[in-house]
Simulated scan of single mutants.
Amino acid sequence: MKSRYSAYALGLSDYVLSTWHASTRPQQLDLSQEKDQGKWIGLTVKQHKPQGDKAEVEFVARYKAKVGPASRLHENSRFVFEGGRWFYVDGDLFDN
């Protein structure tokens, strides 16, 4: 989870895609313009629920756009462990 957040913050599209499960991964992702729009300013992992080869992570990521107020992304993400690696599958957003 933390490495995916860091990859988003640094605009590392290839890393984000490589940690996304093939069953839900988009064909492409371009984060190169994210830095021009604003920046990620923090991550709080609220809960981690491991369940064998699956896990859920509730987190809040904070983002500051260049114009306007800061915003938050509050999600409960699902991960699966395959081939010795964790992969993001999908998540549910909380209403803020």
Rank of each mutant, 00 (worst) to 15 (best):
E58K: 14
G52H: 09
D36M: 03
D53W: 06
K35P: 07
D36F: 01
K39Y: 09
I41Q: 11
K35R: 09
V60F: 12
D30S: 03
I41L: 12
A61S: 15
W40I: 00
V45E: 05
E34S: 10
P50S: 01
V57E: 06
E34G: 08
Q33K: 02
F59V: 13
Q37L: 10
E58A: 14
R25Y: 04
G42H: 01
E58R: 15
R25A: 12
G52K: 04
A55R: 14
L29F: 06
T44Y: 14
Q47P: 01
K35D: 10
D36V: 04
L29V: 05
D36P: 01
E56Y: 13
V60M: 14
S32T: 08
V60L: 11
Q28V: 12
G52C: 07
P50K: 01
D36Y: 00
A55V: 14
G52I: 06
Q27G: 09
G52S: 02
D30E: 01
K35W: 04
W40M: 00
V57T: 12
L43R: 03
L29I: 06
K46C: 04
K54V: 13
V57G: 02
D36C: 04
E56R: 15
R25L: 11
Q33D: 10
Q37Y: 03
K54T: 15
F59E: 08
V60T: 14
Q51I: 11
W40D: 00
P26V: 02
Q47L: 11
K54N: 13
Q47I: 03
V60N: 08
Q37V: 07
A61E: 13
A55F: 05
K46R: 10
P50M: 02
E34K: 01
Q28A: 09
A55E: 15
D36E: 02
Q27V: 07
L29Y: 03
Q33E: 08
Q33H: 04
G38W: 00
T44M: 13
G38Q: 00
E58V: 13
V45F: 09
P50Y: 00
Q27T: 08
Q51F: 05
D36T: 03
K39D: 05
K39L: 11
V57K: 03
Q37H: 08
